Amino acid sequence: MPETGAPAGAPRSQRFGSGGQRARGGASDGHGASGRDAPLYGALDLGTNNCRLLIARPARDGFRVVDSFSRIVRLGEGLSRTGRLDDAAMERAYEALVLCGERVAKKGIESSRLMAVATQACRQADNGVAFIERVRMDTGLRLRIIDPVEEARLSVEGCLNLFDDTAEAVLVVDVGGGSTELSWLKRGGAGFELDGWMSAPIGVVTLAERHPEPAGAGPAVIEAWYEAMVEDMGVALSAAPIDPALREVFAAGRAHLVGTSGAITSLAGIHLRLRRYQRNLVDGLWMSRGDCENAARRLIQLGPEGRAAESCIGPDRADLVLAGAAIMEAVQRAWPSERVRVADRGLREGLLLQKMREDRRPRRRRRRR
């Protein structure tokens, strides 16, 4: 069942800043220490499909990226069938984490400035905690399994400066490998206020495993297969704990979506017909609902081999990209909006901004007796 509500420790009236200037490689977060002498921070995200690391230095308008790493590990492969992390999947993730640990050590990042988290696959798997403990014992990396509410909040935090300041509401959609986090925000007096959230237990890996692509099928069968994925996600979205009247704000064009994941960045790359992925062209891009649908149709027409040959997709994601497109289409049907903003940022950026903000707060001096 989907998890819904307002983030723990963050009441429904929680306010988020209304944006600011975009930081190079990161999100905006006001003022802070900057320059080459500023300490390095790291954010490590072990997801159901990817293992990603971001190393950055605080800057006046957010942070500057120093190094990054991303590898598809498919940690959640087969999890929906067995309830456990597969041995081969754990080895793939372990190897990627070792590389992350080496980068962190090479950069000399202090342990207090490394935020390492794991999400849906480790939350769901019976042996998820045991795998995290093995990683700690062998590599020294201390990953913390976060719950869906924190995952959703961090994704919002990382995308704040992509919100349209004139919008009345925003829906942030974070499509993962094993779940999809959705956060609805409404404009308040000092920015955007969280109106509600949900975590649907459907991501690109789980949806693709539930609906294998029919091999060698004709257009009608392929279209029915894709539509089945859209409907599957649509059922999950029907549990959204949001006042239906808010849909009218979206339908009237007074709100917009923000997509933060490979699902939407892949659609953006196809839409722009990029020969190679270029983050500077994708991050912050505005796409219409029609643009998203046309990109999805092109992916369907390309077929598995054609998708694998696309530089913005590649063979590792060729069998997952349409599941991501189907999830986005289901969201756009449920929450009709002609505008969606593409975010090549999210949880890792949220982790960095949160920690940098905490470290900037002056510590209270102890009173002498």
Rank of each mutant, 00 (worst) to 15 (best):
Pro2Gly: 01
Pro2Met: 04
Glu3Asp: 09
Gly5Asn: 11
Gly5Pro: 01
Gly5Leu: 12
Gly5Lys: 05
Pro7Cys: 12
Gly9Thr: 06
Arg15Met: 15
Phe16Arg: 08
Gln21Lys: 13
Gly25Cys: 03
Ser28Cys: 10
Ser28Pro: 09
Asp29Leu: 10
Gly30Met: 06
His31Phe: 11
Gly32Arg: 09
Ala33Met: 14
Leu40Met: 13
Tyr41Asp: 00
Leu44His: 02
Asn49Ala: 06
Asn49His: 08
Asn50Asp: 13
Asn50Gly: 13
Arg57Met: 03
Pro58Ile: 05
Pro58Trp: 03
Arg60Met: 08
Asp61Asn: 08
Gly62Trp: 01
Gly62Ala: 05
Gly62Leu: 07
Arg64Val: 11
Val66Asn: 12
Val73Trp: 03
Leu75Glu: 02
Gly78His: 07
Leu79Met: 11
Ser80Gly: 15
Thr82His: 10
Glu95Lys: 09
Leu99Ser: 11
Lys106Phe: 15
Gly108Tyr: 04
Met115Arg: 09
Met115Lys: 09
Ala116Ser: 07
Val117Gly: 03
Thr119Met: 07
Gln120Asp: 08
Val129His: 13
Ala130Asn: 12
Ile132Lys: 05
Arg136Asn: 12
Asp138Gly: 01
Gly140Phe: 04
Ile145Phe: 00
Pro148Leu: 13
Glu150Lys: 00
Ala152Pro: 11
Leu154Thr: 07
Val156Tyr: 02
Glu157Pro: 04
Glu157Ser: 06
Leu160Ala: 12
Leu160Val: 13
Phe163Cys: 01
Phe163His: 01
Asp165Met: 11
Leu171Met: 01
Glu181Asn: 13
Lys186Tyr: 01
Glu193His: 13
Glu193Tyr: 10
Leu194Tyr: 00
Asp195Val: 09
Ser199Ile: 08
Ser199Gln: 02
Ile202His: 00
Ile202Val: 08
Gly203Ser: 01
Gly203Glu: 04
Leu207Ser: 08
Gly216Arg: 08
Ala217Glu: 14
Pro219Phe: 09
Val221Leu: 03
Trp225Phe: 05
Met229Gly: 04
Val230Ala: 12
Val230Glu: 07
Asp232His: 06
Gly234Ile: 02
Ala236Asp: 02
Leu237Tyr: 10
Ser238Asp: 04
Ala239Ile: 02
Pro241Arg: 14
Ile242Glu: 11
Asp243Arg: 12
Pro244Glu: 13
Ala245Val: 13
Ala245Phe: 05
Val249His: 06
Val249Gln: 00
Arg254Trp: 05
His256Glu: 02
Val258Met: 09
Val258Asn: 07
Thr260Ser: 11
Gly262Lys: 02
Thr265Met: 15
Leu267Ala: 15
Ile270Phe: 05
His271Glu: 12
Arg275Lys: 05
Arg276Leu: 07
Asn280Phe: 15
Asn280Met: 12
Asn280Leu: 15
Val282Lys: 05
Asp283Gln: 01
Leu285Tyr: 14
Ser288Gly: 15
Gly290Asn: 07
Gly290Phe: 06
Cys292Ser: 06
Cys292Ala: 09
Arg297Cys: 07
Arg297Leu: 14
Arg297Ile: 02
Ile300Phe: 11
Ile300Pro: 07
Leu302Pro: 04
Glu310Asn: 12
Gly314Thr: 15
Pro315Arg: 05
Asp316Val: 06
Leu320Val: 01
Gly324Asp: 09
Met328Asp: 10
Glu329Cys: 11
Ala330His: 06
Gln332Gly: 10
Arg333Ile: 11
Trp335Pro: 01
Arg339Ile: 08
Val340Pro: 04
Arg341Leu: 08
Arg341Pro: 14
Lys355Arg: 05
Glu358His: 04
Arg363Asp: 15
Arg366Ser: 13
Arg367Glu: 07
Arg367Trp: 10
Arg368Trp: 04
